[in-house]
Design a protein around this nucleic acid. Structure first.
Length: 420
RNA sequence: GGAGGCUUCGCCUAGUCUGGUCUAUGGCGCGGGAUUGCUAAUCCCGUUGGGUCUUUCAGGCCCUCGAGGGUUCAAAUCCCUCAGCCUCCGCCA
């Protein structure tokens, strides 16, 4: 959620910033008016309640024979408070519903544009060259019996997979490798809940805007998380953090569930886009002044992890038109996938400034000055399925075996995968 | 799944049976100050969080006793729903 007070105090800068994301100025005018209406009504209700309270209080000290008249008078005041409260509740409801979908203010340095207009900041790793016909991850993994898509389709449907044998071992190795790198940089490992309540989904900004992407349970009011960003962010929901505790850094490992609504026919082959995947995710709570630096820091850890996997990739500064609701700025790493002859997103790292914190009510108690909202940042350490694709396609050999990068060898216990 | 107990302003705690003097008690911790002097002690003051208004170095008012509803002129206190914690039974990895 954006700050209603900022909208009131500096309407122009909010309107200008959100215009970059294509947000309609007239909608903001309406929101500002709604906010005024709410504040006026709050003042009125408070006043009415003060009158009623003092009337009621006097009754307690009054002589018995005076009481009935006073009670009658207080009853009238009560009716007025009740009427105003009903009006206020209606306005509050509208206020919450109308402010919630407003996206975060973009970072001044985030580039303009829409999907596809991202700016490539740099590339790293060597782009692989092959003197044989390249296989894609499906061919490589299936022929080694490390992946079973057909039976997953039977059991669960399209966009599901079994990882088996060395495929399953590869997941454990990659996960532990990524967690170790993140831990070396001060992130505390966490296995979070993946079924969460509505507050957590709302607080992280996935509701209401991404509702169509989220799985939900039928008989219990749980949502399945699409990323452990949700339970990691919500970890400090409703908390007042001491300044000295910051920064707080986590690295979570969890399955992720996405409905992939609206992606029919897109990336249907293999495990690039599936309904259930596993991901190692970094998450930081920091003082606002340090958010930009933390964003760079998380990005550099992501680069370290993928550099260790010997993968060629590019770092992209995502344009404002392609940001999720909660992000002010986002960097993606796109790895080169030889099987597709293209760069594809393997990590994503967002600075959500105070947007999630305002909704989650996660604040900082400062030694001096007022409490303030903490800033939150998240970034993919390693998305297992996509990392597997990049890894096996990059390091494949003519016979279908795959050379294991040195950084991963000790985790996997072997130097070559899929050897015959 | 069943039975019972519990949740109070950082932490601990009084208050709930019997509604009004609760503007929530006391201790610890923390912040500020005073006094005496010797590895400290004593005393005083302050210390939940949020909203809103004003003539904004400040003050007023409202909300906040796990959350939400209800009863009442009046709710920490009575009633209902929900959540969490604890104990026991059942089940289970």
């Amino acid at each position: 959620m954006i700050d209603p007070r900022l909208l009131r105090d500096d309407f122009e800068s909010v309107a200008t910033a959100l215009a970059r994301r294509g947000y309609d100025r007239d909608d903001l005018v309406a929101l500002a008016e709604l906010d005024d209406r709410r504040r006026n009504l709050v003042a009125e209700v408070d006043q009415a309640r003060a009158a009623q309270r003092s009337a009621s209080k006097a009754i307690g000290q009054a002589a018995p024979d005076e009481r009935q008249a006073m009670i009658d008078a207080a009853s009238a005041l009560k009716t007025r408070v009740g009427d105003l409260e009903v009006q206020l509740a209606e306005v509050e409801r509208e206020h919450a519903a109308r402010f919630a979908p407003v996206p975060n203010l973009p970072h001044p340095e985030a580039p303009d544009g829409v999907e596809g207009d991202g700016i490539v900041l740099r590339t790293f790793g060597e782009r692989p060259a092959f003197d044989f016909e390249v296989r894609d991850h499906v061919e490589l993994l299936e022929s080694a019996d490390a992946l079973d898509l057909a039976r997953a389709a039977k059991v669960s449907g399209a966009r599901f997979a079994y990882l088996k044998g060395e495929g399953a071992l590869l997941e454990f190795a990659l996960v532990r490798y990524a967690i170790d790198v993140a831990m070396r940089h001060g992130h505390v490992p966490v296995i979070p809940p993946v079924l969460v309540r509505e507050e957590a989904m709302y607080g992280t900004g996935f509701l209401p805007t991404d509702e169509q992407q989220i799985f939900m349970t039928r008989d219990d009011d749980f949502y399945l998380v699409g990323t452990s960003e949700v339970p990691l962010a919500a970890l400090h929901m409703d908390e007042l953090l001491d300044e000295e505790q910051l920064p707080i850094r986590y690295v979570g490992y969890s399955p992720c569930f996405r409905r992939e609504a609206g992606t029919h026919g897109k990336d249907t082959r293999g495990i690039l886009r599936v309904h259930q995947f596993e991901k190692v995710e970094m998450f930081s709570f920091v003082h606002p002044d340090l958010a930009d630096a933390e964003h760079e820091r998380i990005l550099s850890i992501e680069e370290e992890i993928f550099t260790g996997l010997g993968v060629h990739a590019q770092v992209v500064d995502i344009p404002v038109g392609d940001l999720g609701a909660s992000a002010a700025r986002k960097f993606d790493i796109e790895a080169w996938l030889p099987g597709q002859d293209a760069y594809r997103e393997v990590t994503s790292c967002s600075n959500t400034t105070d947007y999630q914190a305002r909704r989650l009510k996660a604040r900082i108690r400062q030694r001096e000055g007022d409490n303030l909202l903490v800033h939150t940042l998240n970034g993919t350490a390693l998305a297992v399925q996509r990392a597997i694709i990049a890894l096996v396609e990059t390091h494949q050999r003519a016979d279908g075996s795959v050379v294991v990068p040195v950084a991963l060898q000790s985790y996997l216990g072997r130097e070559v995968l899929f050897a015959r």
